[in-house]
């Protein structure tokens, strides 16, 4: 396993937001993290990437505790792309400089990244005036330019149109084909079917179900995943789905 987490617990404001989460990420796989809002998906990503420290449990990178050095073998793309108040080119230059790249090597990587994102003609434009799709493409290629072994993406296509979503998914699939392990949070059932190899289904800060996508999405064992497969709105363990209420009332 490339990345493993055992018994992860995270608390904030006196509330336990993640309880005893166990996760295994296979090297080279595309793992999707799914679940409703507030299930702890983004939180789990941040814990796995080392941006947050768990109250309990630990994250192991290739069998050893996650260090700052190990974090450099990972990259993350956030739901709202965080772009510096600089040009497209300068955003890429900054990320690569942090990784110690200079001169011709850096210029070559920037050129490749811009071409991959289809942003070569916008290289000198301020990054923050690009469209939402262009900004997210820039964020993805900036992360990939650092050549991570593992790329985390937190709902990278939320609020994007189909064309922009397709562009992001292509970048993700190409990176995965080059051997980059992918961990992606999504709400989009179509995206789950298109990209998912492994799925972790979270509900109320716990893993409701995890395993191969064909199993979790095809023959789910847990109620939250079953509700998702049936297209029902699952409202929690002690509530019936909104569809059930709807049928009963009318």
């Amino acid at each position: 396993m490339l990345l493993e987490a055992s018994d992860l617990v995270f608390e904030a404001g006196g509330q336990r937001l993640l309880c005893g989460v166990d996760v295994s990420i296979r090297k080279g796989a595309r793992t999707l993290v799914m679940g409703p809002n507030g299930a702890g998906k983004s939180l789990l990503l941040r814990l796995l990437h080392g941006l947050l420290k768990p109250a309990q449990g630990e994250v192991l990178w290739q069998g050893t505790p996650l260090t700052k050095q190990a974090m450099r073998a990972q990259a993350m793309v956030f739901q709202r792309p965080v772009l510096l108040r600089r040009s497209v080119l300068a955003n890429l230059k900054f990320a690569l400089s942090v990784r110690g790249l200079r001169g011709a090597e850096r210029a070559e990587k920037i050129e490749v990244a811009l071409a991959a994102a289809g942003l070569s003609h916008l290289a000198k434009q301020p990054a923050r005036v690009l469209s939402g799709g262009e900004q997210q493409r820039l964020a993805v290629v900036r992360a990939l330019a650092c050549e991570p072994d593992l790329l985390f993406l937190d709902e990278p296509t939320a609020n994007l149109d189909p064309a922009s979503t397709a562009a992001i998914e292509t970048l993700v699939l190409e990176a995965n084909a080059r051997g980059v392990t992918i961990v992606l949070v999504t709400h989009d059932s179509g995206q789950a079917k298109r990209l998912g190899q492994d799925v972790i289904f979270l509900q109320d800060g716990r893993v409701a179900e995890a395993g191969p996508a064909s199993q979790v999405l095809g023959t789910p064992r847990s109620e939250p995943a079953r509700a998702w497969q049936d297209g029902r709105l699952y409202l929690g363990a002690n509530t019936r789905s909104i569809n059930d209420r709807f049928r009963r009332t009318f």
């Binding site: 990437h49 941006l51 974090m71 993350m76 965080v82 510096l84 900054f94 942090v98 990784r99 650092c146």
Partner: peptide, 24 residues
Amino acid sequence: REYAEQFASLGVGALDRLLSLLWD
């Protein structure tokens, strides 16, 4: 507040972080 997680993810050092924040 906006950059912190991205900088942490990229592994930006303290001095680079300070200079980048001032520049931006």
